[in-house]
């Protein structure tokens, strides 16, 4: 009786596993289809009469060449490479410093016993509840006062800290065993030293997670640069993509090629940091 029951169960399990697999694959197809479609359109020759196909009938890289040189019609010295470089610069200058700034604050809020700590933490959380559009106009006026309209610093500095980052780092640092820190305290280390030489190295996975979130966010940001940047030489990729959409003519192939170029770097960053990304989420968001 027992063996029979067991066999029946494995049989059911196999069917279930198969079913699960089919569903997973179907889901994966839905997830990649639009991305593949973008790729396929970017490889299809452009014409007035377009038919959208999942698999291109004729492959060409013409759209990529066109997309790269496209911005030259607006200014001789500008190619898609200019925007690419700007995007890399802005993303790197937001992501790097922001990691330090957020983790510093997260560490102090998690570990140092200072007056007003709770209030400060709730203030950081409150920043997450403010839709950007709510503050866009006053922020525009603040940045104008600083004379940062149409500059790189205007695109960068306002985003060097984030409530989400502070929160993630605080949650992580809270979960680090106290003993590690106590030993250093006995040795008379300053908070800064403890943060820099003990805590930050431990936070590597959270740094990985936040790198991806920050990079992703700053790479894709659209509305704010749109509002403050006019100089074509300072534009980032998402802004540049609007140039491909004319009033009457949108060159879909070129646009899709541009979008593909704009998507690849961030996907590469994700693939490179994938493992520590997952670990960091365990430590930052879940434990704590």
């Amino acid at each position: 009786m027992t063996p029979k029951l067991k066999k029946k169960r494995t049989c059911r399990e196999i069917v279930l596993a198969g079913l699960k697999y089919i569903l997973l694959v179907a889901g994966a197809i839905v997830m990649v289809a639009p991305v593949l479609w973008m790729l396929s359109t970017s490889l299809t020759p452009d014409s007035v009469i377009i038919s959208y196909q999942l698999i291109p009938s004729k492959i060409t890289f013409e759209n990529y060449v066109r997309a790269w040189d496209f911005p030259r019609v607006f200014s001789d010295s500008v190619t898609l490479g200019t925007f690419f470089f700007n995007s890399v610069l802005v993303s790197a200058l937001i992501t790097g410093p922001a990691l330090i700034i957020d983790s510093l604050a997260g560490y102090v809020l998690a570990r140092r016993d200072i007056p007003g700590k709770n209030l400060l933490f709730y203030l950081a959380l409150a920043t997450m509840m403010i839709p950007f559009y709510v503050i866009a106009v006053p922020l525009f006026l603040v940045v104008r006062k600083l004379r940062w309209l149409d500059t790189f610093q205007g695109m960068i500095v306002p985003f060097l800290s984030s409530g989400f980052g502070v929160f993630m780092f605080k949650q992580f640092f809270q979960s680090v065993p106290k003993e590690l820190e106590d030993a250093a305290l006995v040795d008379g280390c300053s908070p800064w030293r403890i943060y820099w030489s003990i805590m930050l190295p431990l936070a590597k996975p959270v740094v990985g997670t936040m790198t991806i979130f920050k990079a992703m966010w700053s790479w894709n940001q659209f509305f704010w640069p749109l509002l403050i940047i006019n100089n074509i030489k300072l534009k980032t990729l998402p802004l540049a993509l609007t140039m491909f959409r004319g009033l009457n003519v949108t060159e879909w192939g070129t646009l899709c090629a541009g979008m593909t170029i704009a998507t690849i770097p961030i996907v590469v960053v994700y693939l490179l940091m994938q493992d520590s990304f997952q670990k960091g989420i365990v430590m930052g968001a879940v434990k704590g």
């Binding site: 607006f74 749109l226 006019n230 074509i232 802004l239 609007t242 140039m243 959409r245 004319g246």
Partner: peptide, 8 residues
């Protein structure tokens, strides 16, 4: 500076 319609 050309400002495409897509840039509002």
């Amino acid at each position: 500076q050309a400002v495409p319609w897509g840039e509002d």
